[in-house]
Amino acid sequence: MKIEQEPQGGGGGHSQSHAVELQDVAIAFPMTDGTRYEAVGQTQLKVKDREFVAIVGPTGCGKSTLLNATAGLLVPAEGRVRIFGKDHTGLNRHAGYLFQQDSLMPWKTSIDNVAIGLEIAGTPRREALEKARAWMGKVGLAAFCDRYPHMLSGGQRKRVGLAQVLIRDPKIILMDEPFGPLDAQTRLIMGDLLLDLWSADRKAVMFVTHDLDEAISLADRVIIMSAGPSSRIIGDYTIPLPRPREIADIKSEPQFQEIHREIWNALKEEVLKGYRQVEERQ
Protein backbone atom coordinates (compact mmCIF):
# COMPACT_ATOMS: atom_id res chain seq x y z
CA MET A 1 0.00 0.00 0.00
CA LYS A 2 2.19 2.76 -1.17
CA ILE A 3 -0.41 5.24 -2.35
CA GLU A 4 -1.21 7.05 0.86
CA GLN A 5 -1.85 10.64 0.05
CA GLU A 6 -5.05 12.39 1.19
CA PRO A 7 -7.72 12.65 -1.47
CA GLN A 8 -8.28 16.14 -2.73
CA GLY A 9 -11.67 17.79 -2.77
CA GLY A 10 -12.56 17.15 0.90
CA GLY A 11 -13.15 19.98 3.31
CA GLY A 12 -16.13 22.29 3.03
CA GLY A 13 -18.47 22.92 5.94
CA HIS A 14 -17.95 19.52 7.48
CA SER A 15 -14.18 19.40 7.36
CA GLN A 16 -13.82 18.35 11.00
CA SER A 17 -16.46 15.59 11.02
CA HIS A 18 -16.79 12.89 8.39
CA ALA A 19 -19.95 12.39 6.37
CA VAL A 20 -19.96 8.75 7.38
CA GLU A 21 -17.99 7.15 10.13
CA LEU A 22 -18.33 3.47 10.93
CA GLN A 23 -16.74 2.72 14.31
CA ASP A 24 -16.09 -0.94 15.09
CA VAL A 25 -19.20 -1.87 13.16
CA ALA A 26 -19.96 -5.57 13.00
CA ILE A 27 -22.95 -7.04 11.28
CA ALA A 28 -24.47 -10.36 12.23
CA PHE A 29 -27.65 -12.26 11.57
CA PRO A 30 -29.32 -14.86 13.80
CA MET A 31 -29.46 -18.25 12.11
CA THR A 32 -32.38 -20.65 12.30
CA ASP A 33 -30.30 -23.09 14.40
CA GLY A 34 -29.76 -20.43 17.07
CA THR A 35 -26.18 -19.56 16.16
CA ARG A 36 -25.07 -16.19 14.86
CA TYR A 37 -23.69 -15.62 11.41
CA GLU A 38 -21.25 -12.75 11.35
CA ALA A 39 -21.31 -11.21 7.89
CA VAL A 40 -18.95 -8.34 8.59
CA GLY A 41 -16.33 -8.33 11.37
CA GLN A 42 -15.40 -5.18 13.28
CA THR A 43 -14.88 -2.52 10.68
CA GLN A 44 -13.65 1.06 10.69
CA LEU A 45 -14.49 3.26 7.75
CA LYS A 46 -14.50 7.00 7.32
CA VAL A 47 -15.93 8.79 4.34
CA LYS A 48 -15.36 12.50 3.96
CA ASP A 49 -17.91 14.93 2.72
CA ARG A 50 -17.72 15.21 -1.08
CA GLU A 51 -15.59 12.07 -1.27
CA PHE A 52 -16.32 9.21 -3.67
CA VAL A 53 -15.49 5.90 -2.03
CA ALA A 54 -15.84 2.59 -3.81
CA ILE A 55 -16.08 -0.62 -1.81
CA VAL A 56 -14.89 -3.72 -3.66
CA GLY A 57 -15.09 -7.31 -2.59
CA PRO A 58 -16.05 -10.75 -3.77
CA THR A 59 -19.75 -11.49 -4.08
CA GLY A 60 -21.36 -12.25 -0.75
CA CYS A 61 -18.73 -10.54 1.41
CA GLY A 62 -21.29 -8.33 3.12
CA LYS A 63 -20.44 -5.06 1.47
CA SER A 64 -24.11 -4.35 0.90
CA THR A 65 -24.85 -4.83 4.59
CA LEU A 66 -22.37 -2.04 5.37
CA LEU A 67 -24.42 0.23 3.13
CA ASN A 68 -27.64 -0.89 4.79
CA ALA A 69 -26.16 -0.13 8.19
CA THR A 70 -25.18 3.33 6.97
CA ALA A 71 -28.67 3.83 5.55
CA GLY A 72 -30.24 2.75 8.83
CA LEU A 73 -32.11 -0.10 7.16
CA LEU A 74 -30.11 -2.50 9.31
CA VAL A 75 -28.95 -2.18 12.90
CA PRO A 76 -25.33 -3.28 13.34
CA ALA A 77 -24.70 -5.96 15.95
CA GLU A 78 -21.80 -3.95 17.34
CA GLY A 79 -20.27 -0.56 16.91
CA ARG A 80 -21.53 2.88 16.07
CA VAL A 81 -22.60 4.60 12.88
CA ARG A 82 -21.91 8.30 12.93
CA ILE A 83 -23.31 10.64 10.31
CA PHE A 84 -21.71 14.10 10.15
CA GLY A 85 -20.33 13.59 13.62
CA LYS A 86 -23.58 12.49 15.25
CA ASP A 87 -24.62 9.03 16.33
CA HIS A 88 -27.67 8.10 14.39
CA THR A 89 -30.50 5.69 14.96
CA GLY A 90 -33.37 4.90 12.64
CA LEU A 91 -33.32 5.75 8.98
CA ASN A 92 -30.56 7.99 7.75
CA ARG A 93 -32.34 11.10 6.50
CA HIS A 94 -29.16 12.47 4.93
CA ALA A 95 -28.76 9.50 2.64
CA GLY A 96 -30.09 8.59 -0.77
CA TYR A 97 -29.89 4.94 -1.76
CA LEU A 98 -29.67 3.50 -5.26
CA PHE A 99 -30.41 -0.21 -5.08
CA GLN A 100 -29.13 -3.02 -7.25
CA GLN A 101 -32.56 -4.47 -7.97
CA ASP A 102 -35.41 -2.59 -9.59
CA SER A 103 -36.77 -0.28 -6.96
CA LEU A 104 -39.02 2.05 -8.93
CA MET A 105 -42.70 1.90 -8.11
CA PRO A 106 -44.11 0.12 -11.18
CA TRP A 107 -47.52 1.78 -10.78
CA LYS A 108 -46.11 5.28 -11.18
CA THR A 109 -44.81 6.87 -14.38
CA SER A 110 -41.10 7.73 -14.48
CA ILE A 111 -41.72 11.37 -13.72
CA ASP A 112 -44.01 10.53 -10.81
CA ASN A 113 -41.34 8.17 -9.49
CA VAL A 114 -38.83 11.00 -9.60
CA ALA A 115 -41.20 13.56 -8.12
CA ILE A 116 -42.45 11.40 -5.25
CA GLY A 117 -39.49 12.13 -2.97
CA LEU A 118 -40.29 15.84 -3.08
CA GLU A 119 -44.05 15.38 -2.93
CA ILE A 120 -44.00 13.37 0.27
CA ALA A 121 -41.74 15.98 1.81
CA GLY A 122 -44.48 18.53 1.22
CA THR A 123 -43.46 20.16 -2.06
CA PRO A 124 -46.57 21.13 -4.05
CA ARG A 125 -47.19 18.68 -6.87
CA ARG A 126 -46.78 21.21 -9.68
CA GLU A 127 -43.41 22.32 -8.41
CA ALA A 128 -42.28 18.74 -7.74
CA LEU A 129 -43.21 17.74 -11.29
CA GLU A 130 -41.37 20.71 -12.72
CA LYS A 131 -38.19 19.75 -10.87
CA ALA A 132 -38.67 16.11 -11.77
CA ARG A 133 -38.92 17.08 -15.44
CA ALA A 134 -35.64 18.94 -15.15
CA TRP A 135 -34.02 15.89 -13.55
CA MET A 136 -35.39 13.59 -16.25
CA GLY A 137 -33.59 15.89 -18.67
CA LYS A 138 -30.35 15.70 -16.71
CA VAL A 139 -30.34 11.91 -16.91
CA GLY A 140 -31.17 12.10 -20.62
CA LEU A 141 -34.74 10.86 -20.44
CA ALA A 142 -36.72 14.05 -21.09
CA ALA A 143 -38.81 12.24 -23.70
CA PHE A 144 -39.68 9.35 -21.38
CA CYS A 145 -41.47 11.15 -18.56
CA ASP A 146 -44.82 9.44 -19.07
CA ARG A 147 -43.49 5.93 -19.52
CA TYR A 148 -44.08 3.34 -16.86
CA PRO A 149 -40.99 1.49 -15.60
CA HIS A 150 -41.79 -1.71 -17.51
CA MET A 151 -41.67 0.27 -20.77
CA LEU A 152 -38.06 1.29 -20.12
CA SER A 153 -34.84 -0.65 -20.62
CA GLY A 154 -32.73 -1.68 -17.63
CA GLY A 155 -30.33 1.22 -18.19
CA GLN A 156 -33.17 3.71 -18.48
CA ARG A 157 -34.69 2.44 -15.25
CA LYS A 158 -31.36 3.03 -13.53
CA ARG A 159 -31.31 6.57 -14.87
CA VAL A 160 -34.77 7.18 -13.45
CA GLY A 161 -33.58 5.66 -10.17
CA LEU A 162 -30.59 8.00 -10.16
CA ALA A 163 -32.84 11.02 -10.73
CA GLN A 164 -35.21 9.76 -8.03
CA VAL A 165 -32.38 9.67 -5.51
CA LEU A 166 -30.58 12.86 -6.54
CA ILE A 167 -33.65 15.12 -6.76
CA ARG A 168 -33.89 14.99 -2.97
CA ASP A 169 -30.38 16.44 -2.77
CA PRO A 170 -29.07 13.91 -0.22
CA LYS A 171 -25.72 14.71 1.41
CA ILE A 172 -24.69 11.06 1.23
CA ILE A 173 -25.32 8.77 -1.73
CA LEU A 174 -25.25 5.04 -1.19
CA MET A 175 -25.05 2.81 -4.25
CA ASP A 176 -25.26 -0.95 -4.11
CA GLU A 177 -23.88 -2.38 -7.36
CA PRO A 178 -26.26 -0.05 -9.13
CA PHE A 179 -25.02 -0.93 -12.61
CA GLY A 180 -24.56 -4.62 -11.88
CA PRO A 181 -27.46 -5.88 -14.01
CA LEU A 182 -26.49 -3.76 -17.04
CA ASP A 183 -24.42 -4.74 -20.05
CA ALA A 184 -20.80 -3.56 -20.32
CA GLN A 185 -21.41 -0.63 -22.71
CA THR A 186 -24.37 0.68 -20.73
CA ARG A 187 -22.27 0.48 -17.58
CA LEU A 188 -19.62 2.73 -19.11
CA ILE A 189 -22.24 5.27 -20.14
CA MET A 190 -23.92 5.15 -16.74
CA GLY A 191 -20.54 5.59 -15.05
CA ASP A 192 -19.83 8.72 -17.09
CA LEU A 193 -23.32 10.06 -16.34
CA LEU A 194 -22.81 9.44 -12.65
CA LEU A 195 -19.44 11.22 -12.66
CA ASP A 196 -20.91 14.18 -14.56
CA LEU A 197 -23.75 14.59 -12.09
CA TRP A 198 -21.50 14.08 -9.11
CA SER A 199 -18.84 16.53 -10.34
CA ALA A 200 -21.50 19.21 -10.76
CA ASP A 201 -22.56 18.87 -7.13
CA ARG A 202 -20.24 16.73 -5.05
CA LYS A 203 -21.67 14.53 -2.32
CA ALA A 204 -20.19 11.82 -0.20
CA VAL A 205 -20.63 8.59 -2.15
CA MET A 206 -20.32 4.99 -1.00
CA PHE A 207 -20.34 2.86 -4.11
CA VAL A 208 -20.38 -0.91 -3.70
CA THR A 209 -19.21 -3.01 -6.62
CA HIS A 210 -17.43 -6.27 -7.34
CA ASP A 211 -15.79 -4.76 -10.41
CA LEU A 212 -12.32 -3.38 -9.64
CA ASP A 213 -12.12 -1.52 -12.98
CA GLU A 214 -15.34 0.29 -12.26
CA ALA A 215 -14.20 1.15 -8.72
CA ILE A 216 -10.86 2.63 -9.81
CA SER A 217 -12.29 4.61 -12.68
CA LEU A 218 -15.03 6.20 -10.57
CA ALA A 219 -13.68 6.68 -7.08
CA ASP A 220 -11.33 8.88 -5.04
CA ARG A 221 -10.68 5.96 -2.76
CA VAL A 222 -11.06 2.23 -3.19
CA ILE A 223 -11.75 0.03 -0.16
CA ILE A 224 -11.09 -3.69 -0.52
CA MET A 225 -13.02 -6.20 1.57
CA SER A 226 -12.14 -9.83 2.14
CA ALA A 227 -14.44 -12.76 1.50
CA GLY A 228 -17.01 -13.55 4.20
CA PRO A 229 -17.92 -14.65 6.77
CA SER A 230 -16.56 -12.01 9.13
CA SER A 231 -15.25 -10.10 6.17
CA ARG A 232 -13.23 -7.02 6.90
CA ILE A 233 -11.44 -4.21 5.15
CA ILE A 234 -8.09 -5.41 3.81
CA GLY A 235 -7.05 -2.47 1.70
CA ASP A 236 -7.60 1.26 1.39
CA TYR A 237 -6.19 2.91 -1.73
CA THR A 238 -6.33 6.52 -2.79
CA ILE A 239 -6.79 6.90 -6.53
CA PRO A 240 -4.80 9.91 -7.74
CA LEU A 241 -6.20 9.87 -11.28
CA PRO A 242 -7.08 13.41 -12.38
CA ARG A 243 -10.67 14.54 -12.85
CA PRO A 244 -12.72 15.00 -14.93
CA ARG A 245 -12.39 11.42 -16.06
CA GLU A 246 -13.62 9.75 -19.20
CA ILE A 247 -14.18 6.16 -18.11
CA ALA A 248 -13.70 4.50 -21.48
CA ASP A 249 -10.39 6.35 -22.04
CA ILE A 250 -8.99 6.22 -18.55
CA LYS A 251 -8.66 2.46 -18.58
CA SER A 252 -6.02 2.57 -21.28
CA GLU A 253 -3.83 5.02 -19.36
CA PRO A 254 -0.62 3.58 -17.84
CA GLN A 255 -1.36 5.12 -14.44
CA PHE A 256 -4.71 3.32 -14.29
CA GLN A 257 -3.11 0.03 -15.18
CA GLU A 258 -0.41 0.49 -12.58
CA ILE A 259 -2.96 1.17 -9.83
CA HIS A 260 -5.05 -1.72 -11.04
CA ARG A 261 -2.10 -4.10 -10.97
CA GLU A 262 -1.08 -3.08 -7.48
CA ILE A 263 -4.55 -3.38 -5.98
CA TRP A 264 -5.21 -6.61 -7.80
CA ASN A 265 -2.01 -8.21 -6.50
CA ALA A 266 -2.96 -7.39 -2.92
CA LEU A 267 -6.57 -8.35 -3.47
CA LYS A 268 -5.74 -11.69 -5.07
CA GLU A 269 -3.43 -12.67 -2.24
CA GLU A 270 -5.89 -11.64 0.46
CA VAL A 271 -8.84 -13.27 -1.25
CA LEU A 272 -6.93 -16.54 -1.52
CA LYS A 273 -5.92 -16.22 2.12
CA GLY A 274 -9.55 -15.69 2.98
CA TYR A 275 -10.54 -18.83 1.13
CA ARG A 276 -7.86 -20.87 2.92
CA GLN A 277 -9.13 -19.62 6.29
CA VAL A 278 -12.63 -20.68 5.40
CA GLU A 279 -11.38 -24.12 4.41
CA GLU A 280 -9.40 -24.53 7.63
CA ARG A 281 -12.42 -23.61 9.69
CA GLN A 282 -14.55 -26.27 8.08
Binding site: Y97, S103, I116, G117, I120, R168
Partner: peptide, 19 residues
Protein backbone atom coordinates in the same frame (compact mmCIF):
# COMPACT_ATOMS: atom_id res chain seq x y z
CA UNK B 1 -36.50 -3.44 -2.44
CA UNK B 2 -39.37 -1.16 -3.44
CA UNK B 3 -40.31 -0.90 0.22
CA UNK B 4 -36.76 -0.05 1.33
CA UNK B 5 -36.47 2.44 -1.50
CA UNK B 6 -39.73 4.12 -0.55
CA UNK B 7 -38.57 4.39 3.06
CA UNK B 8 -35.23 5.82 1.98
CA UNK B 9 -37.13 8.39 -0.07
CA UNK B 10 -38.62 9.53 3.20
CA UNK B 11 -42.07 7.95 3.31
CA UNK B 12 -43.76 7.61 6.67
CA UNK B 13 -46.22 4.82 7.52
CA UNK B 14 -49.23 6.56 6.04
CA UNK B 15 -47.40 7.48 2.85
CA UNK B 16 -46.13 3.91 2.47
CA UNK B 17 -49.73 2.75 2.73
CA UNK B 18 -50.90 5.17 0.08
CA UNK B 19 -48.02 4.94 -2.39
Amino acid sequence: TILSNARMLGMNGRQLLRH
